[in-house]
Design a protein around this nucleic acid. Structure first.
Lengths: 140, 140
DNA sequence: CCATGCATTAGTATCACACTAACGATATTA
DNA sequence: TAATATCGTTAGTGTGATACTAATGCATGG
C-alpha cells in the first residue's frame, strides 16, 4: 500500500514525449506547438513546461523549449517502456491503436528494468508495432 | 495524447483492495482499519471512502464500510489485472515482492480485456505468484 | 506605425490528497 | 455512576496538478 512518488505525471510525460518526438534534429519547440500537442491552452502548457524545468528535464529560452540531457534520457526511457508494452499488447492480440494509447497510460510508471525483462520475455523484438526501434539508437 | 478519465485514483484503488481483501466473509471494515491499511489518518481515509461512495463503489453505515455490488466487481477486476501483471513480471524474472508492489501501480489503469489477452499469452496460469487464484472464484 | 502572433502574467477554479484540532458518541472500567 | 479511552466526524488548512479566461507585453512583417 505504499505511495510511489512518480517522477513525472501523465501530463509531464506527454510533454516530454512531445518534445522528444516533435523536435527533430534538436530543434526546440515553441510553446504554442507544445500546447497544440497537449491539446491545451498556452498558459496551461507553460505551466507544464515550468514544472519540467524545475525538475531539470527541460529548459526554455526565448520561448523555445528543449529537453535537457536528463530530460532526453527520461523521455527515451519512457519510449522504451512504451514500445515494449505496446509490443506485448500487440503480440497478445490488442489492436495497434489501442495498444499505443493504452501504453501511454503506463509507460511513465513502469520501471525501465522491468520493461527490459518483459522485452526479453517476448522475444526481444527490435521494432515496435509502428516500426520504430525499441532500443537505444534513433527514434522516429 | 488523450487524457483518460480514470475510474479510480491510486488511493481509491488501494481503498477498494483493502475493502475486498480485508473484509472476509462480507464483514465490513471500520474506518480506523481502512486508515491503517492506507497508512493515513482517519479524516483522510474518510475522505477517500466518501469519494468511493459518491462513485457508487462503497457504502457506509454506523461507521462500517462495505463495497457495493459495483465496487466489488471493480475491485475484482483490479485484482484480476493485478495478478495477471504480477504473473507476467514473475515469469519475466522480476522478484515476487517487486512484482506485487509494481503491479499495484498499474492494475487500476490497465483495461480488463487487455489483461485477459495478456493472461492468455503467458499461458493462462490459474494462480498468481502468491498462489491466489487469478480468475473469478474466491480471492484470498 | 499598426496589426497579428505569440509568450507571459494574473487571477480563478477544481480535484485529489493530507494534516491537526476539536467535538460527539459509545463503551469500558474503576 | 463517573472517568477514560476509542472511534467517527467536522471544520479548517495546505499543497500540487490541472485547466481556464483576460489582460499585458513584445516582436515582426506589412
Amino acid at each position: 500500500m505504499e505511495y510511489s512518488t512518480n517522477v513525472v505525471s501523465k501530463r509531464e510525460r506527454d510533454c516530454l514525449v512531445s518534445l522528444v518526438e516533435g523536435s527533430t534534429k534538436g530543434f526546440p519547440l515553441r510553446l504554442y506547438q507544445i500546447a497544440s500537442f497537449l491539446r491545451v491552452k498556452p498558459p496551461t502548457a507553460l505551466n507544464v513546461v515550468r514544472r519540467l524545468e524545475q525538475k531539470g528535464l527541460a529548459q526554455s529560452k526565448d520561448g523555445m523549449t528543449l529537453l535537457t540531457e536528463l530530460g532526453d534520457r527520461t523521455a527515451k526511457r519512457i519510449l522504451l517502456v512504451h514500445r515494449t508494452y505496446e509490443s506485448l499488447l500487440c503480440q497478445s492480440g490488442v489492436s495497434e491503436k489501442s495498444a499505443c494509447s493504452d501504453a501511454a497510460n503506463v509507460d511513465f510508471i513502469i520501471p525501465e528494468e522491468e520493461a527490459r525483462l518483459i522485452l526479453k520475455k517476448i522475444g526481444n523484438p527490435r521494432l515496435c508495432p509502428h516500426g520504430k526501434p525499441i532500443r537505444d539508437g534513433e527514434d522516429k
